[in-house]
């Protein structure tokens, strides 16, 4: 069990370190890096490589944004198998519906209740 948590910690940490290096050493900004990560997650899942990382890293591979790309691609593949051509369009959002809907709904509710404060 401890091994699972250790792998999670290390894999997740490494994915963040790669982004930090890109942030500090290149002219890429956060937004560019996030786009790079989600596209990489989709592409690596499409060719079957990301599944291996998920087996090793558990949530360390699914929680980062590459994992979001993995969920997108996994949903698309499954929808193509079960629904056919329409799955190309419906599968991605189906796989990530929970996260996106939660972000919008909680975002709106939090915006109602709280005000943005100056950074310190």
């Amino acid at each position: 069990m401890l091994k699972i948590y250790l792998s999670t910690f290390v894999v997740g940490g490494i994915l963040c370190v790669i982004a930090q290096i890109l942030l500090n050493k290149t002219t890429l900004k956060s937004a560019n890096i996030l786009v790079l990560y989600i596209v990489s997650g989709v592409l690596l899942s499409a060719v079957g490589i990301y599944e291996k990382l998920v087996e090793i890293g558990y949530s360390g591979a699914t929680v980062p944004l590459t994992g979001f790309g993995y969920a997108l691609m996994k949903g698309t593949k499954e929808a193509v198998v079960t629904e056919g051509f329409i799955g190309v369009f419906t599968g991605g959002l189906f796989g990530t519906a929970g996260g996106i809907t939660a972000a919008i709904v909680f975002g709106y509710l939090v915006a109602l209740m709280f005000n943005a404060k100056t950074k310190k």
Binding site: S30, K117, T118, K119
Partner: peptide, 10 residues
């Protein structure tokens, strides 16, 4: 960027 966005500037 929005004030509550977690961002690290150089």
């Amino acid at each position: 960027t929005p004030l509550e966005l977690g961002v690290q500037r150089p």
